[in-house]
Nucleic acid binder design. Sequence first.
RNA 1: GCCCCGUUCGUCUAGUUGGCCUAGGACGCGAGAUUUUCAUUCUCGAAAUCAGGGGUUCAAAUCCCCUACGGGGUACCA
Length: 509
Amino acid sequence: MENRVRVRFAPSPTGPLHIGGVRTALYNYLFAKQNNGDFLLRIEDTDQTRFVPGAEEYIIEAFKWLGLNFDEGVGIGGDYGPYKQSERKPMYKQYALDLVAKGKAYYAFDTAEELAQKRLEAESQKTTFQYDCKTRQSLRNSLSLPQDEVQRLLDNGEAYVIRFKFDEGQTIEFDDLIRGHIKMESSLLDDKVLYKSDGMPTYHLANIVDDHLMHISHVIRGEEWLPSCPLHVSLYRAFGWEDTMPKFAHLPLLLKPDGKGKLSKRDGDRLGFPVFPLQWQDPKSGEISSGYRESGYLPEAVVNMLALLGWNDGTEQEIFSLEELVNKFSIERISKHGAKFDLEKAKWFNHQYLQKVSNSDLAKVYLDELNTKNIATTIDKVEQVVGLIKERCSFSNELWAQSDYFFVAPTTYAEKALKKRWKEGMGAIMTTISEHLKAIEDNDWAQKAEDFLMQYIQSNELNMGQIMNCLRLAVVGDTKGPNMLDIMRVLGKDEILLRLDTAIKNINL
RNA sequence: GCCCCGUUCGUCUAGUUGGCCUAGGACGCGAGAUUUUCAUUCUCGAAAUCAGGGGUUCAAAUCCCCUACGGGGUACCA
C-alpha cells in the first residue's frame, strides 16, 4: 500500500459534471492505470445547501458512458469507505479537535453575518477583510477571548467554527508535478474554516483527512486549487502526516472558446457545443443543457479530444485509443496554461472515430432513429445507406440529413440546380431514358442501367454532367449525395422509375 | 487591491538538458486535383520577428530580471 498509486476524482454533486471535470478525471484515470494503481470516486457533498438531486447518479452514468471505470468508491465500494463525505460526517470532528489541542486551530464564534459586515466595510474602504494573524485578535475566538469565556460559550452550545491557525512569518513551500516549486508567505494566508457550524467539515479539512485515510498517493486536480494548496500542505504538517502526503499536480483550466474566463455552463449552448458529457435537465428550473452523448459524439472521441486538450505525447500522433493513452500519458507533458475549447477540432475528432464504426453497428443506431420517424425499412438497406454516406458525416445524428432521400422521395427540387441543369428539352430526354430503364430486366438491373446510361449518353453525344445531374435532381431532389449509380442500386428499379416519373411531371420547363 | 499560475500561427500544440528553428504538426482557412453533383480524400499555400523590453552567452523561443496581458484564488462553495 505504501507505494501503490491511488488517485481519486472527487466531484461535488451540485449539478451535471463539467467537461473540465471530465478531463481531470481522465488524467487521474490514465495515471492510475499506467501505474497499475487505483482510481477512486469520492463524492464531496459537505455543502448540504448545494446538493442537487440526481447529480450523483449523473456522474456515475457519465463515466460509464465514457468507459472510464472506477476501481473503488461510490457505487462500487471498497476497503476505505464510505466514499461519500456526508456519510463520513462523524469522523471529521475529532480531527478538527485534534488540531485545536495541538494549537494549530482554534474556535471562532463570529457569525457569518458579522463577517459579511466586516467584508462590506473593508470593501467600502477599498481593502479586503481577511480572517488572519493580523485580525484574529480583534475577533471573537478562542485566541482572543479569555479561556473561561470560551468554555462558557462552548458549554452554552454557542455556534462555532474551527479555523486553521496560520503562524506568521513562515514560508510555505511545496512541489507541484506540473508547475515545479511553489512558495507562499503564511502571513498572506487567511485562517480558513475547517469545521463548519453545521457540524460538517469544509472541503479543506475533509479532503486532507480522506486522502490520508484512503491512502491517496497523488492529488491531480484543477488549477483553481493551487491557491489553497499551501493550506493543505500545512494541514498535512499539522496532523503529522507529512511523510505520507500525496504529491500534487494542478491542471490548467479549460477556457471559453471566445471571450475570457473558464469554460462555464452557459458557454455551451451559447456557442453550440456541449459542456457536459450527458444531457442534463435541471430539477428546479427544468432547463436543459446539452450533452456530448445526445449530440452524437462517440465516447472514444470525447476521451481522445479531451486528452489532447493540454497534453500530447511529443510526437505528431493525435488519434489515441484509451489503451494507448494509458501507455503514453505522462504528467510531465501536461501543459501549464489553460486551453480554449475548439469546436471544429472536436468535430474532426468525432469524424475520425465515426469512420471507424462498422457499417452494421452504425446501421443499428440509425435504424432506431428511422423507426422513431416511422420509416419502414430493413436493416440491410440501412447498412448499405450507411456505407455510402458515413464518410460525409461527423456525427451519427447527421445521418438523416445526408440520406433522407433514400427513405423519402423528394417533393421539391433544388431551384438553382434546376435552372442550371434542367434545360429546354430535358423532360423529353428524361422520358426516353425512363422508358429505356423500364425496359431493362429486373435481374441485375442497376448494373445494366449503368451500362445503358453510359452508352446512351455517348451515342447521343449528350453531356454526361447534364444528364447525371438531372437524374440526381429527379431522384434526390438536390445536388447532394454519393455516386448516382450507387443510389440507383440501393433504391432499385421501381423506386427510381417512380421518382423519374414524378419529376418529369412536376418539373415543367 | 493582494496572492498564485501562465504567455510560440485564429485555435490545440512541438520545441524539455540554450546551437540541427530560415520555429514543426493538427484543426480551421485559401487554392488546385480527383469525383457526372455535394461531401470525403489528396496536393499545395497563407498563417507565430516565439507578448514587449532589458540582461547573461560566441549563440536564447529555450536561462535571469522588469513591464504588459491572460487565467485562477481571495466564502461557515467545492
